[in-house]
Computed example of a mutant assay.
Amino acid sequence: MPPESTTSAPITIALVDDYDVVVKGVANMLDPYRDRVLVAELDSTMPVEDAVDIVLYDSFAQPESDHEEIGVLVANPRARRVVVYTWNFHSDLVESARRHGAQGYLSKTLPARELVAALEAVHAGEVVISDVAARARSAPGLDWPGRGEGLSDREAEILALITQGKSNADIARLTYLSPNTVKSYIRTIYRKLGVGSRTQAVLWGVNHGFTPDHHRIEHWRGGP
């Protein structure tokens, strides 16, 4: 059971990413803690409309090395605080996010209870940056395109970027992975999908939810 609420009213959250399945996974993971953290809206390539305490910006298949989107969210008067939710803890990315005004940089490996506690700390005025020593599995409950077909979270992200038309060099730059690591991921993706070319991989991605979504889900499960 989730711990008892320590606040008189739950923190309101907007979840932001280009993929519905990604933000829905986060919302589902947070649902047992809705007495402490209440999801107000889920946004896929749409601006935040509700006034919320925290915008949780999921970095899945987003341009991690270009934090302009974080700046846009920080500048939105409806967003009191902005927190990045990511797998990638390269020091340059953390520094860039902080420079653009993010008050938190949280790991997708955090169990739900620790994620909620971190969001409460940010809401209380702290700057919270997860201490991540090494790449680990995502927290239980998260979702991403292709998970049901056996793609790992990072493989799915690489395929999403391929489906968006990014080159290997683009992907390496955006994810802070080496070109050889990107090539290795792509080989594994091709093998898992049973495809032999980039064109076939893109077609598979288009047919399996790897193109960005474009809408808002308001009032998630009776939220504000």
Rank of each mutant, 00 (worst) to 15 (best):
M1E: 13
P2R: 05
E4Q: 13
S5F: 05
T6A: 12
I11C: 09
T12M: 09
A14D: 05
A14Y: 03
V16C: 13
Y19S: 04
Y19F: 15
K24L: 12
V26N: 01
Y33H: 11
R34C: 03
V37C: 14
L42W: 02
L42R: 12
L42Q: 12
A51E: 15
V52E: 10
D53S: 11
D53N: 14
L56N: 06
A61R: 03
E69W: 08
I70S: 07
V72L: 13
L73Q: 09
P77A: 10
R80F: 00
V82W: 10
W87I: 09
N88M: 10
D92K: 15
A97R: 01
H100V: 02
G101L: 08
G101A: 09
G101R: 08
G101W: 06
Q103R: 15
G104R: 12
Y105V: 08
L106M: 11
T109A: 15
P111W: 07
A117L: 11
A118N: 13
E120G: 02
V122P: 04
V127E: 14
A133L: 14
A136N: 11
A139F: 06
G141E: 07
W144K: 06
P145A: 10
G148P: 08
G150L: 09
S152V: 07
D153S: 14
E155C: 11
L159C: 04
L161M: 15
G165F: 01
K166S: 07
N168P: 00
D170W: 04
L174S: 06
L177P: 00
P179F: 02
T181M: 10
K183G: 08
S184H: 01
R187M: 04
I189P: 00
G194L: 09
G196R: 12
G196W: 01
S197R: 10
T199F: 01
V202A: 00
G205F: 04
V206I: 15
F210W: 11
I217K: 12
E218K: 14
W220N: 05
R221Y: 05
G222V: 09
